[in-house]
Design a protein around this nucleic acid. Structure first.
Length: 364
DNA sequence: AAAACGGGGGC
DNA sequence: GCCCCAGTTTT
């Protein structure tokens, strides 16, 4: 007598025997769950693990996070990307201190009101930390459910999302929703992968429609491909050397743009095509940095190409040694010693530039 | 509904 | 070079 197939039972049995041991698994603290979920947004587990450890060591609870500065949080986040996550975590911690007496709210609905907690993260926290029966639907879940049911509606459309959500609600285990959600994601990460999934090891193989109909490589279907736009940024690295200390003029990015909150150098960006020579000769440069003798501005060989998901950045660096640091009028420009600069939250390419290029230029 | 937001790793 | 990752916010 063959036992009827049961999605949650098969999946959870597989999960029990095959789950990776991760530092936030079996974690009961809602705070720890929250931090791990935010770190793992659009981030592979392996990339996020060390950040999770450092973050929890530096900010062990909501209070310590709320009482830190945004810059301290960004510094821990440096290199992980999507910096709004760090800024939102900091703001959210203060929100929780003032509005929820320092306790994480437990329900999906309340959690979703918190900065940086969207539908996925609210469902993950409420199900894992508080056993609320609600599916946490991330990229893994969309892939697992769409393949299992042979859903060929694009998963990144609202109608596709509705289908996936209905499926997830119909399969979720009401007695262990947190484990169920984690099991779906684990399956998506380890077995039901985007490319070359390991179907022969899948506990759901016998009932998988996409597998049965040979549609694995076409599901999940997605619409659109973003066009990768290019931007050129011209950086001006002003520094001075006095005895043993090097000072630089740094710029904090405050606009709703890439790297908000992080520090780079004073810069110019144009809509039309420019080259370094034209920029150096431009009037706007002279207006912005009147203390520079432009003839002595040295451009560093070739722009640095920095590739992001939706952008290609061409970063042009020009360096200029000042005999004395000028008085700065721009509110976003500040003078720091090189030592201080290395303690600021820096975009990856700025960090690389400082370590690889300025190291030679300044220290020679 | 679409665009913006990082950085890294797999193939 | 392309894909996409335990997504959210802004436009």
């Amino acid at each position: 007598m063959k036992k009827p197939f049961h999605f949650a039972e098969s999946l959870l049995n597989w999960y029990k025997n095959n789950a990776r041991t991760l530092p936030f698994r079996n974690e009961v603290s809602p705070y720890a769950i929250w931090i791990s979920e935010v770190i793992l947004q659009q981030t592979r587990v392996n990339q996020g693990l060390e950040y999770y450890r450092r973050f929890m060591a530096r900010f062990p609870n909501i209070k310590s996070l709320a009482e830190s500065t945004e810059e301290e949080v960004l510094k821990i986040w440096q290199g992980l990307g999507y910096y709004s996550r760090a800024r939102n975590l900091h703001e959210a911690a203060q929100q929780i201190m003032s509005l929820y007496h320092g306790q994480m709210p437990s329900s999906y609905q309340e959690l979703k009101k918190i900065k940086g907690i969207g539908p996925y993260t609210a469902a993950a926290i409420s199900s894992i930390a508080f056993q609320e029966v609600i599916p946490a639907i991330d990229g893994n879940a969309k892939r697992v459910f769409s393949r299992f049911l042979g859903i060929n509606t694009p998963v990144n459309t609202s109608s596709g999302s509705v289908l996936i959500e209905k499926a997830a609600f119909s399969f979720i285990d009401p007695f262990q929703p947190g484990n169920f959600n984690q099991a779906v994601m684990e399956l998506g990460a380890m077995i039901c992968t985007p490319k070359r999934p390991s179907c022969t090891n899948c506990p759901l193989l016998s009932e998988c429609i996409a597998y049965k109909e040979n549609q694995i490589e076409y599901i999940p279907l997605k619409v659109k491909k973003h066009v990768v736009k290019e931007r050129s940024i011209f950086y001006f690295v002003f520094y001075s050397k006095a005895e043993d200390t090097v000072q630089l003029i740094m710029h904090q990015r405050t606009r709703n743009d890439i790297w908000k909150g992080l520090y780079d150098f004073p810069s110019l960006e144009f809509n039309e095509a420019m080259n370094v020579q034209k920029v150096i000769e431009s009037e706007i440069l002279k207006q912005q940095f009147p203390y520079v003798k432009f003839a002595e501005l040295q451009s560093i060989n070739g722009p640095l190409k920095h590739i992001l998901t939706h952008r290609i950045l061409w970063l042009h660096f020009s360096v200029y040694e000042l005999s004395v640091m000028p008085h700065i009028e721009n509110k976003n420009h500040t003078i720091y010693t090189l030592h201080e600069v290395l303690g600021l939250p820096l975009p990856r390419p700025i960090e690389i530039f400082l370590k690889e290029f300025m190291g030679k230029t300044i220290l020679v």
